[in-house]
Amino acid sequence: MSIWSKVLVGLIFVSAVAFYYFATRTLASHAAWQKAVATYPPVLEAQQKLIKTFEEGDNTTTPPTPSISELEVKLHDLLTGRGKVWRGCKVQKFEDGTLKLAVEVPFPDPHQIQDKMVLYLFEEADGGHYMGEYKVEAIGDKLVSLAPTMMPPTPNLLKQQIDRVKGTRSTWSMYEKLPTDRHDVFRGYDQNQLSQLMPGVPAEVLQEYLRDGTDAQPNDPADRVVDKKYERLLRDYGEYFHALNGQLASLRDQIAAATTDKRIAEKLQADTEKEVQARVTLIDKTLKPELEESKQEVAVITAHRDGLQAKLDEVRKQMDATLADNRRLLAQWVAMQTSAAKRLDEIIDRETAGTAAPYTGE
């Protein structure tokens, strides 16, 4: 056998080994694919159900799953009602005292923001905050200067807003219109889901959202029943924010007035206490000694009066005795005068008659 024959046999042997290896791998892959294919029907069926759910929707889930066509209608309504939105905005400058902002608007270019436009700012991160209502003061190519339309009415709220702006770690979205309240946004959610979406909301308010769109009850207000269904009252959040800010400002003014009144009352109280202390000092140092002196003088005067009264009583007794003697003497004198007059009349009568006895002087 020639050398080429030997080489050819060697190559055939090597090729046979290689073909054997690849045939073995092919059989193993085929078995693996057959095993995998056996698991595909349930997955395919689940995906087909999911596709059907997306196409037709599912009202049995909580919340109900809308169809793609329903989502397109809702998306159209949302886009129509929300106005323009600028996303991915970054705060480049912030003034603590005035809360004014300089915000970078990355797109679109140009951004189409107009001067004096009112914008509503939100953080884009999950659980982000509503950052407030701002008005455009100046416009640049990429930067927009904004000023708040409502300043926080109290120092604590102002500090809270400053900390919130300084502590933001995400980009912001700026809305041309404040998102409106809608019936279909929260319908179908259970209480736990609503509590997670709206933490801190009172239970009675969550109950309004839970009942929204359900059958009306006999005690429901007439203006909350539409086609025998309960419909909660939609809220104008922009109006609420302005009203709340006004109430807080009013409370701030009332607190300031009450604080001023309290300070005035405290000063009046302090002045009154000083006046009372001065009067007490005057009473202790001046009036009480004068009172003691007056009491002593009253005692002397009283003793003198009592002495005079005793003398007066004695004089009255003497006067009464003298008057009694005078009455007795007057009675005697009257009796004497009467007797003398009678005697004189008798003498005159005798002399007149000529028969009178001569007067003997008796």
Rank of each mutant, 00 (worst) to 15 (best):
Phe122Pro: 07
Gln92Leu: 14
Phe107Gln: 11
Ile283Pro: 04
Gly246Pro: 00
Leu197Asp: 04
Lys267Phe: 03
Asp220Arg: 06
Gly246Glu: 13
Ala18His: 12
Gly200Ser: 05
Leu75Ser: 12
Thr149Gln: 13
Leu99Ile: 01
Asp163Phe: 10
Ala102Trp: 09
Gly10Gln: 06
Val43Arg: 11
His304Gln: 10
Val315Gly: 01
Thr65Asp: 06
Leu78Phe: 13
Leu344Phe: 13
Leu282Asn: 13
Asp215Thr: 06
Glu239Ile: 01
Glu293Ala: 12
Gln92His: 14
Leu330Arg: 03
Gln309Asn: 09
Gln318Met: 07
Phe13Cys: 14
Ser15Lys: 07
Lys317His: 08
Gln48Phe: 06
Glu72Tyr: 06
Ala324Glu: 09
Asn156Asp: 15
Thr53Ser: 11
Glu55Gln: 15
Tyr359Ser: 03
Glu124Gly: 10
Ser67Trp: 04
Pro202Phe: 03
Thr80Asn: 04
Asp181Pro: 02
Leu158Ser: 15
Ile51Met: 08
Tyr134Cys: 01
Leu121Ser: 03
Glu72Gln: 15
Val225Asp: 04
Thr180Phe: 02
Gln114Glu: 15
Ser294Asp: 01
Gln296Glu: 09
Thr360Ile: 08
Gly57Phe: 10
Trp172Asp: 00
Asp115Met: 09
Tyr189Ile: 04
Val14Arg: 00
Ala28Tyr: 14
Thr98Ser: 15
Lys74Thr: 09
Arg25Cys: 01
Pro358Gly: 11
Gly188Val: 04
Ser170Asp: 08
Gln337Val: 05
Met319His: 02
Leu11Cys: 04
Ala353Glu: 11
Ala324His: 01
Asp190Cys: 07
Arg187Glu: 09
Leu234Trp: 03
Asp236His: 03
Gln309Thr: 05
Phe19Asp: 02
Phe122Ile: 08
Ala331Cys: 02
Glu95Ile: 11
Met151Ile: 05
Glu55Ala: 15
Gln337Met: 05
Ile264Val: 15
Glu297Val: 07
Ile68Met: 14
Gly10Lys: 05
Ala341Gln: 11
Val103Gln: 04
Pro148Glu: 08
Gly354Val: 10
Pro179Phe: 06
Asp109His: 07
Ala138Leu: 02
Tyr175Val: 03
Met319Tyr: 05
Leu197Ala: 08
Gln193Phe: 02
Tyr120Trp: 11
Lys229Gln: 12
His30Val: 09
Ala335Phe: 07
Asp212Lys: 01
Gly140Asn: 07
Asp349Asn: 13
Ala147Cys: 05
Phe241Ile: 12
